[in-house]
Amino acid sequence: MGAASLAAPAMAAHAQTFPAKPIRLLVAFPAGGPTDITMRALADNAGKVLGQPVIVENKPGAGGTLPAQALQSSAPDGYTVAQIPLGVFRLPYTTKINWDPVKDITYVLNVTGYAFGLVVPADSPLKTWTHFVAWAKANPGKLSYGSTGTLTSPHLTMELIAQQLGLELLHVPFKGSADLMQAILGGQIMAAADSTGFAPQVEAGKLRVLNTWGAERLAKFPNAPTLKELGLDLVQNSPFGIGAPKGTPPAVVRRLHDAFKQAMEQDSYRAALARYDMVPMYMGTVAYLKFAQETFARERALVERLGLAKPL
């Protein structure tokens, strides 16, 4: 009890002076992609609020789960925070880990979510979704599509689509949108399932959107049908936010939450999101933890339905 009573004032003093040095924000995808670009805008705004720089550090690979894994060995002092994509909640069902995605992360706030779709090169003979499905059925296992990584939302959604339609597709994983766009523009794959990181290439006339995956058509691509319009009962959006190590003091979490919430409300961040048909999607600390708990349960059902769960 004596040690605890001594620790409490020390933690309070730390929270009052936080931050006294730069903060690292670990981002799950490579530099130059939509996640990196939007998170850098958010980090710049948050740094101005906090009075210390928020430095983005890219940790791509492993389906977007490396930042969350890095939190497990980071000090719970608020100086290391991480992007938490949905893939984090699938980890225990697909690989062996010694930590819990819900209990071993402090959920600070949710900031936005991805809009997704499927694109092909502008000169592709697969001009519509009907052409895509027909070619895939006529050529089992030969229609190649890329995603932002194995067990990411684009990969799993395409596998659900293939399952519903009886298609056999060839999946090619990449580390993120930037690499994926290079591959499809270079002719290495026939299609790309991605967040709307493809928007600049579509607007430049290099790619064509076959469908989008939200509940409604995207304002930027009004001619692209949703999956539901194409007869598939699927809606995929993928909220993500910021987490800190387990045990981060509540006062520090509150400071981080307030700073990033202010950062979300700035025009520069909203403009960065708008480039990719993304919008601010705020969840506070309590709501974000509840979302994590519910998503963790839901993702298990999805992985098992697709037969991708690994025996542990």
Rank of each mutant, 00 (worst) to 15 (best):
G241C: 10
T157I: 12
D104C: 00
K246L: 09
H131K: 08
G241E: 06
T148E: 11
L230G: 09
A204H: 07
A20L: 04
T65H: 09
A70P: 01
A178F: 11
A244M: 02
N211I: 00
L167T: 11
T112W: 01
A134Y: 08
L185W: 00
A7I: 07
L26M: 01
L160E: 14
Y79I: 02
A271N: 11
V235P: 03
F296L: 02
K246I: 07
G307L: 09
R270Y: 00
A271L: 03
L126H: 04
K220Y: 05
L143V: 14
K96M: 01
M283W: 06
V209C: 07
L156D: 07
A263W: 00
D100N: 15
L230H: 05
A199Q: 09
P140N: 08
A4D: 12
V253K: 06
Y288E: 09
D123S: 13
A41M: 07
K175I: 07
L66G: 04
W135C: 02
G241A: 09
L273I: 08
Q293N: 04
L227H: 07
W99Y: 14
L180M: 15
K206D: 12
I189E: 11
T94D: 05
G113I: 01
T65F: 05
G247A: 08
R24P: 00
A68P: 00
A7G: 00
G187E: 10
A193T: 12
A43K: 02
A183P: 00
D123H: 11
Q293G: 07
N45E: 15
D194W: 00
L256F: 10
E159Y: 04
G205I: 07
N98S: 14
G32H: 10
L273Y: 03
L26R: 03
P250T: 04
F116Q: 13
W213E: 12
A15M: 01
L151F: 13
T35I: 12
A251K: 10
I105K: 05
T196C: 13
P22K: 09
G32K: 06
D267F: 03
A309P: 01
P311E: 13
N98E: 10
R270N: 11
S195L: 11
G51H: 04
D36K: 02
T130Q: 15
V54Q: 10
M264I: 06
M1H: 08
G2M: 12
L234V: 14
P250L: 01
A75P: 00
T106I: 04
L227G: 03
A82W: 08
A75H: 13
A178I: 13
L165G: 11
T106N: 13
P76A: 12
A10V: 15
T157K: 05
L167K: 05
V303A: 13
L86A: 15
A31H: 01
S238M: 02
R90T: 12
L232Q: 14
L126I: 07
F116S: 08
Q293V: 15
K228I: 05
A193P: 08
G33I: 05
T35S: 13
A219T: 15
K21G: 05
Y79S: 04
D194E: 15
R90G: 13
L207V: 11
F260A: 08
A162Y: 10
G47A: 06
V88P: 00
A31R: 10
K175D: 10
F132R: 02
G241D: 06
G284E: 06
L227Y: 05
V303E: 10
A274H: 09
I161F: 01
